[in-house]
Design a protein around this nucleic acid. Structure first.
Length: 472
DNA sequence: TTTTGAGTTGTTCGA
DNA sequence: GTCGAACAACTCAAA
């Protein structure tokens, strides 16, 4: 007997129609398909900016589904209960979704899967968020990789899954279940800063992501290996925002990158390596889930980092008195993003010069970044703090002056984001004062502070403390 | 089992 | 200005 019951496609961080194995499979089945997005316990726990940005992505996906004659059903509530209620209302026999790999989502998904299976439902997870499943990549001894370069060597020549075109139509159910209203969820509610400011910098949805990838491949990949480090240039792909919500698949990036490689474009391999860094972050978070909250490397739990202090606020406000650090922190607040190299600089300054716990930075990024990703954020912060992957953290203390000299030689990045860095600051730098909370009492006529921790002094202090840590 | 080569993104110093 | 060495050892991954 052929199953003709509807399939619920539960969408989470896979807000696209193309390269979507679960959706593709559902479309092929000929059964009615009911796409669903849940404002569940995971969404509830998101930081302000990611939650707001997610709302935009959900809206874009809903419109895209309407274009092919389908809908996106929205429900708020705990995931399992809400799915069970939907199953009851629709007579669905299947619930399919794209697999996630961070501990919180794994916990939710395995509980949901078990409960639904007990209810006799075909609950199934599909690949799609990654090129390689974390358990598909292992060392010669059958272990997971802890070092990036061998991981890269192990995967760079591998076949990746085949791509699936976006379905042209989806069979509608005989009757659509009720949907809540996205506006009613107020997903931008926790954003104190003006969403209208950050909103000027986002590029939302599958079509925008594909356009961005295409223009990057046309104009920038050639120079990517040099320009990606330049804070004063637009040399990065800017696709992290779309990747994190699944508005574009890593397969799309891989394909384009491989094509650029075969065309002999200089920066193509560096770009592919960056895509694989994302894979590596997920590899680590899957095999060592404690990386999201606790020191990844053993023996670092007792490192004498400070918890949140009054000085932390000055870091968040971009008032450390170190121009390149402050420019970056303001860029984060205004745009919801930060240049990759700048992330390392502010992370190094916080955890080394200021000797503040990386978790403080991780939490701030989780609140502010529209491209926040559970795996990449955790790996990045632990890497920069020295408690994470990579062999020689001891003497890697970024000197903001040296870095600025190298990667923002004329100060264009600093002037762009830091009003105090020029006499006639551009609109981008001034937007910070409109965006930041009133309670911060930040005004552009306030004088720029002296360094919170002077560079030489901070470096030496960090070296001393890290030296002690090393000696155990 | 043992050995060997290597490790994202740095900084400073001195030649 | 440019270059190589030192920083300080340890762990990982493969041969």
């Amino acid at each position: 007997m052929t199953d003709t019951s509807p399939i619920l496609i539960w969408l989470r961080r896979d807000l696209r129609l193309g390269d979507h194995p679960a959706l593709h499979c559902a479309a092929q089945s000929g059964r009615p398909v009911i796409p669903v997005f849940l404002h569940d316990e995971i969404v509830e726990g998101l930081g302000a900016a990611p939650k707001w940005r997610l709302g935009l992505g959900v809206d874009a996906l809903a419109k895209r589904l309407e274009e092919i004659g389908s809908r996106l059903i929205l429900r708020r509530g705990e995931a399992l209960e809400t799915l069970q209620a939907l199953i009851k209302q629709t007579g669905a026999g299947s619930v399919w979704w794209t697999r996630q790999y961070d501990p919180d989502q794994i916990a939710r998904d395995s509980a949901v899967k078990e409960a639904l299976k007990n209810d006799g439902i075909d609950a199934r997870s599909f690949r799609g968020h990654l090129l390689f499943e974390p358990w598909e990549v292992e060392t010669g001894q059958g272990k997971f990789y802890q070092v990036y370069t061998p991981f890269w060597k192990a995967v760079r020549g591998r076949e990746v899954p085949t791509r699936h075109p976006a379905p042209k139509t989806l069979t509608a159910p005989r009757e659509w279940p009720d949907s809540e209203s996205l506006n009613g969820w107020k997903m931008g509610h926790a954003m104190q800063r003006g969403a209208e400011i950050v909103g000027q910098y986002v590029h939302v949805g599958e079509a925008a992501a594909q356009a961005r990838l295409a223009s990057f491949m046309r104009d920038a990949v050639e120079r990517y290996d040099q320009d990606r480090d330049r804070m004063d240039r637009d040399g990065t792909s800017g696709l992290s925002e779309n990747l994190t919500y699944g508005e574009i698949s890593p397969l799309a990036l891989w394909d384009s990158g491989q094509r650029a490689m075969s065309e002999g474009k200089a920066g193509a391999e560096t770009f592919l390596k960056e895509v694989v860094w994302r894979e590596f972050a997920y590899h680590l978070v899957y095999h060592t889930p404690h990386i999201t909250r606790k020191s990844w490397r053993e023996g670092w739990e007792n490192f004498p980092w400070d918890a949140e202090t009054a000085e932390t606020l000055r870091w968040k406000q971009g008032r450390t008195g170190i121009e390149i650090v402050d420019a970056a922190m303001r860029e984060l607040y205004v745009t919801g993003r930060m240049h990759n190299r700048a992330r390392m600089l502010v992370g190094s300054y916080l955890t080394k010069h200021m000797l503040t716990h990386w978790r403080v930075g991780l939490d701030w990024f989780a609140d502010c970044l529209i491209d926040w990703d559970p795996a990449a954020n955790a790996m990045g912060w632990q890497w920069v703090a020295g408690s994470g992957p990579d062999a020689s953290p001891y003497f890697r203390i970024f000197n903001p002056d040296t870095q600025a000299e190298k990667f923002d030689p004329k100060g264009a990045y600093r002037r762009r984001w830091l009003a105090e860095a020029s006499s006639e600051p551009p609109e981008t730098a001034l937007q910070f004062f409109d965006a930041c909370p009133k309670s911060w009492d930040m005004r552009r006529d306030h004088s720029y502070p002296k360094p919170l921790v002077p560079l030489a002094e901070g470096r030496q202090r960090a070296l001393d403390v890290y030296q002690k840590q090393k000696q155990g």
